[in-house]
Structures are given as structure tokens and as C-alpha cells.
Design a protein around this nucleic acid. Structure first.
Lengths: 201, 201
DNA sequence: TTCTTGTCACCTAGGTGTTAATAT
DNA sequence: ATATTAACACCTAGGTGACAAGAA
């Protein structure tokens, strides 16, 4: 079983409509699924995302293997499984193995755990050896620049690398932002999100 | 077969008597061999290392496995095998997996390549599956502070992280330092030395 | 006296949103 | 009008030797 790390923060983002910057820049692996065959448009007046025509041609469906893959189950259980090296791009000709997405389209990260079956006829058991986990609160829209200003503000407030853009005292933020606010996290932003961690069975 | 990266710079250091700082802070792996059962002392007046009594009790003989291990031969051949994550310590109680050395003792890095034999009785072939490479120019004395001032100067001149201590224009150093000087290298200092690279057979 | 440790300024390397310019 | 790109200042994270203080 798997549980999402920092779910409270994911929920907070999801409530606003998570956006992820794509730049030329999840064996355990992560894959981005496009759940809706349409293009999105942000309506500033209503601060909401609207459907805007058909989807652009699908991008090459790349998979991001976790750098520690393959590793034994005991190793995965030792620590949080973080996908902070995953990068998103909108460059169809990308040569760095980054996940290619269409800007202004909505995606759903899918987390996969595959058992490396030692049997010679392991192909027969591919289905039972393949487990998928989906956390709906991790859905996001790929963008080249943030549309929803509140998403920008939440990124700035929660990502240590963006400290330079905070206006209130960083020391006070965890206490004053709102009651029960999350403490600062170690890595969360620009397509660099920890997604899943193992749970004791 | 294996060849040493940046041999010219290793030679330059070796000629002066390489020193490596140990702080609390090379399957393909590296191991530090203590070739002489004695302690060293630096004579400032003659700028040379002298024998100074018997060796201190041997430290736990830890091995540093390259982070990419295990990997297939083709993978190793693709790029330089760098041990820039290797760290040395004099802390006998070290808990970070660093290699434990006695300060003021001389060491010889040994590079090992082990073939992961798929046969069930692979133990029988352990010897033929185990290959050791030694580059004598990589010998060094473990120290807690540099003794030979010219070693300090060479470290400063050749390690990008020590640029702050250079007095001549860094731009000019590769050309003016001395005829045929090595270009700046990407990682070389405080127990962080690239040691070996594969050679086409 | 000799050796070791901790703190510091100074770097490399790379992750942030901003902004202005550019492309569609 | 909308979407994208590249240069930028500002951060985190961590690798350097210098230096002062401490330990053996």
C-alpha cells in the first residue's frame, strides 16, 4: 500500500487548481495520464479553468523511472519515495528524458509498482505483478506561466527555493499563514513534487 | 582495462606528496590500503615526510561502492567512473558509511571490478571474477590539516570550489600557471577525487 | 608542541518566480 | 489577445581552505 506525502498541501493546491510549469527542462515509476481530451483556458474574470476546444496531438508517452529503480522492497520501505528529479517539458524533441506534456492540458500522475518476476514465463503474470496507485489531489494543468495568481502565491509560500519572493517574515509564515498551516517543506514546486511514500502493510 | 583520469594532475600532486583531509564528514568499488605499518610526521624544515613510530591501530576496513553499482559493463563504459561522492573520516564511530582512516598515515587507493557471476557455484570463481587496479600516483597521506604548503596551493589552483582563495586572475590561471598546465577540472579535492575511467578493450 | 575541531567567507551548482521581449 | 521564451535576482545546498580555539 502507498500513501501520499504532504497530502494536506496537495489538497490545498488541488482546491485552487494545481498548475505545473513545463520547461525545457514519477521498478517504481510515474506516468502522466491525460484524463480529458480537451484543451484548457483560464478565465481570469471568474478565476477558473474552462474547456477550450479539442486536445492538441498527444505527446510521446514517456515514463519517469525512479532513480533508485530497480531496488528490493525492503529498500523502498526504508525511506520516502520522492520524485523530486522528475522534470516536465513541452519540447517534443526533448533529449533529456523529461516527461513531455502539452501546455494548457490537464494531467493525472499515476504511480506504478512493478514486481520483477524471476520466473522465465513472467510475461504471463504481468498483470498481477503490476500495481497502479492514483492520487486525484495531484492532478494539475501544465502551463508555461501560472494563470491563477493564488497558485503562484501558494508556491511561493510553500517552496523554500522561492523564499526570495515572500513579503512576510518567513519565520512567521508557518504560524501566521492560517491555523494549522503546514510547515515548510523540503521540495515542492516546478514539476518537482514528492508524490508517494510506502506504508507498512 | 582501466586508465586514470587526469593523470597529469595526479602526478603533479604525487610529486609533492599528496595529502587528503579527513573530516567527520572508490560491483565497482574503492578501498584504501595502508601500505606501510608506520605513522608519518611532516618535517617543515626539510619539507618532507618522515617515519614517526609504529602505526596506530588499524581502522575498520570499509569499502566504498560506486553509487551506480551494480551495473552492466556497457553502462560503465558509457561514461567516466567518478568517485566524487567518496568521503574520508577519522571518526571510528562514523555512521555515514564514510571510509575511516588514521590521520598522519599513508594510504593507497585500490580500485576493484567484480563480475557478478550468474552461476550457482560462483564462489568457486571468485578469484577470476575479481580484478584489482592500482594507480601509485594516487597515494596520499591522511591529514586533518595540510602540512605541505605547496599541496595547499595546488589544491587551491586546481579545485573550482576553492576559487575564493586564488590570488591571480582565475581566467588567466590555466594559461599562466606554468607552460602546459592542466585546465581547471570539475571535481578534485578534499577526498573527492575522480580516480578511474574505463578504456576500450 | 603537535595535532584536531568548529566556524567562517567564498565559491559551485542548480531550483524559484519575475519580467520584458518575442512568437503565435 | 494569448501563449512562450530567455535573462535575471534571489534563494537552497553543499564543497573549499583560513583561522582561532581547543585537545593530546
Amino acid at each position: 500500500s502507498v500513501q501520499l506525502e504532504m497530502k494536506a498541501l496537495w489538497d490545498e493546491f488541488n482546491q485552487l487548481g494545481t498548475e505545473m510549469i513545463v520547461t525545457k527542462a514519477l521498478w517504481v515509476h510515474l506516468h502522466m495520464h491525460n484524463p480529458a481530451p480537451c484543451r484548457s483556458r483560464y478565465a481570469f474574470h471568474s478565476s477558473s479553468w474552462l474547456v477550450a476546444g479539442k486536445a492538441d496531438p498527444a505527446t510521446p508517452g514517456r515514463v519517469h523511472y525512479h532513480p533508485d529503480s530497480p531496488a528490493k522492497g525492503a529498500q523502498w520501505m526504508k525511506q520516502i519515495v520522492s520524485f523530486d528529479k522528475l522534470k516536465l517539458t513541452n519540447n517534443l524533441l526533448d533529449d533529456n528524458g523529461h516527461i513531455i506534456l502539452n501546455s494548457m492540458h490537464r494531467y493525472q500522475p499515476r504511480f506504478h509498482v512493478v514486481y520483477v518476476d524471476p520466473r522465465k514465463d513472467s510475461e504471463k503474470y504481468a498483470e498481477e505483478n503490476f500495481k497502479t496507485f492514483v492520487f486525484e489531489e495531484t492532478r494539475f494543468t501544465a502551463v508555461t506561466a501560472y494563470q491563477n495568481h493564488r497558485i503562484t502565491q501558494l508556491k511561493i509560500a510553500s517552496n523554500p527555493f522561492a523564499k526570495g519572493f515572500r513579503d512576510c517574515d518567513p519565520e512567521d509564515w508557518p504560524r501566521n499563514h492560517r491555523p494549522g498551516a503546514l510547515p515548510l517543506m523540503s521540495a515542492f514546486a516546478r514539476s518537482r513534487n514528492p508524490v508517494a511514500s510506502p506504508t507498512q502493510p
